[in-house]
Each structure stands twice: as C-alpha cells, then as structure tokens.
Amino acid sequence: MKFIVEDAGAYLQIKVTEARIDAAIATPFKDKLREIVVKHRKPVHLDMANVTFMDSSGLGAMIAVRKSLPDNLAIVLCAMTPNVERVFRLTRMDRVFDIRPDAIQKEANE
C-alpha cells in the first residue's frame, strides 16, 4: 500500500497509487490513509487519477478516512475516473465529498 504524500503548504497532497480500491485491500488502504491524515492534521487533496475501479468496500474506506479527519478538516477528491465517480454518484456520496474533476494544480501564488 503506497501513497505519494507531499506537503503543499496549505494542504496535504496525497496521490493514490493503487489502481483498484476493492475488498482485497479496503482495510489496509483505510488504515494507512487514516494514519497519514491524522498525523499531518491538514486539509487533504486526494489525487484519484490512478484509481480505475472502486467497489462499496472501497467507498466505505473513503468514508471512514473522511470521518477520521480531525477538526472537520476538508478532504477534496481530485481527478476521479468515470468508474469511481459512478460509485460516489449512485450512493449520493458525491454530495458529501468535495469532488473536483481536474488533476491537482500547483497554485502559483502560494
């Protein structure tokens, strides 16, 4: 389970390297990501561009991570692929998460 973590100043940028967030890895995915976000205590931008498949156990892991963010810090999901976006949309979790279509852009004036 590998995440590419980069401190972008105002927020933490995390790139998911796994292509599939499914029942085979949902629990370690959740535990590892939760550990990262709790340790840094910053808003999170999660780059989902590599993830081509996610099932309901993967969705459950994402929800658990969101709930574990301290002090209501934001989590933004970026660059979701259509298969992953479908799961969020059908379960109406697209209303709960902040979802942005584009890949994470480095903000020039930061």
Partner: peptide, 23 residues
C-alpha cells in the same frame, strides 16, 4: 434504499445491494 447519510455519522457500509439492484 441507501443507508441514511447522517452528516456527523456517515454510514461506512450497506451500499452493496443498493448498487446491485440499481445496476
């Protein structure tokens, strides 16, 4: 139907059969 999405206590499961029936 979907499990109720309560803002401060979101469900982490209960989506599977909803998705199956929906698709």
């Amino acid at each position: 139907s979907l499990p109720p999405a309560i803002a401060d206590n979101l469900p982490e499961g209960g989506f599977g059969w909803f998705l199956v029936q929906n698709l």
